[in-house]
């Protein structure tokens, strides 16, 4: 089953408005990529529509997984900023036992990473 996004998922619990930050970083002339959770299965920690903004230096704000895969997304974002091509990343749990021990990152998510040009 695909989970669905909240009404206003651009503002995470931290209170940072990720889309506004993406705009202001870009206006400063930084290379910027925006990552978005586009699909989830199972117990995904962040709903569809959640954003992470990344700049060319690896600074980031927001969340696509509550910390589980942000490192990988930030690394991929550097390449997206460099070559300008969007990508869809998929993260999951290979080991079925992960469900039983209740890892917060159980389940699978697809994340779209695109440049803000």
């Amino acid at each position: 089953m695909t989970e669905t996004g909240t009404v206003n998922s651009a503002v995470p619990a931290s209170g940072v408005d990720v889309l506004a930050l993406a705009e202001s970083w870009r206006r400063e002339g930084r290379g910027v990529a925006l990552a978005t959770v586009i699909e989830t299965w199972g117990s995904a920690p962040r709903p569809v529509g959640s954003h992470l903004v990344i700049d060319a230096d690896g600074n980031f704000e927001g969340s696509v997984s509550g910390g589980c895969v942000e490192g990988a997304v930030v690394a991929e974002a550097a390449e997206v900023i460099a070559d300008g091509a969007p990508r869809v990343l998929e993260f999951g749990v290979a080991d079925e036992t992960a469900w039983r021990v209740g890892l917060s990152c159980g389940g699978r998510i697809r994340v779209h990473v695109a440049p803000v040009a």
Binding site: T4, G5, V7, N8, A10, I38, V48, G49
Partner: peptide, 18 residues
């Protein structure tokens, strides 16, 4: 108010509901 990925003739699209 739900964002979702949909399949279209022009390929997959993501609709961000704001």
């Amino acid at each position: 108010g739900r964002s979702a990925t949909i399949a279209t003739e022009a390929g997959e699209m993501f609709l961000t509901a704001s």
